[in-house]
Amino acid sequence: MAIEILYFAWVREAIGQGSERVDPPADVTTVAGLVDWLALRGGGYATAFEHRERLRAAVDQAFVPLDTAIAGAREIAIFPPVTGG
C-alpha cells in the first residue's frame, strides 16, 4: 500500500524533503508505527522522529492521534504542533 507522506516545518528540514511516496511493510498499521519505521532509516529521519511526543499527524487531511490506523490512507502529514495567532 503506497502512501504519500508530507513533512512540514522542522520535520521537513531534518529529513531534507517535503514529501515522498512510501510502501511500508504490512506490520506497520498505525501512524506511530509508520513514524517508527521511517526513523529506522537513520540520519535525518532518526533526528526528526526522535521525540515522537513532539509530532502531530493528519491522515487524508484530518488531524489524528498517532495511534490512528493507516489502512486505506492515501496521504499522511507529519508536522510539529501548530501554533498561530
Rank of each mutant, 00 (worst) to 15 (best):
R54I: 00
G16C: 03
P65S: 11
Y45Q: 08
V64F: 01
A9R: 13
A14H: 09
L34D: 11
L40D: 14
L40M: 12
V11Y: 01
L55T: 08
L38T: 01
P65N: 15
P24H: 03
R41H: 12
Q61H: 15
R41Y: 10
T47Y: 11
G43H: 08
W37R: 15
L66E: 03
Q61V: 10
V64A: 09
G42I: 08
F8E: 02
W37V: 14
A69H: 12
A46F: 07
A39D: 10
F8S: 00
R54H: 07
D23M: 04
L38I: 06
V28C: 09
Y45L: 10
L55R: 02
G33W: 00
V59M: 02
L40F: 00
D23Y: 09
A46N: 15
G43R: 10
E50I: 03
S19T: 10
E13R: 11
V31C: 05
W37K: 12
T47R: 09
W37Y: 05
H51T: 05
G42N: 03
Y45D: 05
A14T: 11
A39F: 05
A9M: 05
V28F: 00
L66C: 02
L34A: 03
P24M: 06
G44L: 10
F63G: 01
R12M: 04
T68E: 06
A14E: 08
E20C: 11
T68A: 15
A46W: 05
V28Y: 00
G16L: 05
A14I: 06
H51D: 15
V28K: 02
D23T: 07
L66Y: 03
V64Y: 01
P25I: 14
V28S: 02
V35H: 13
A62F: 02
G18C: 13
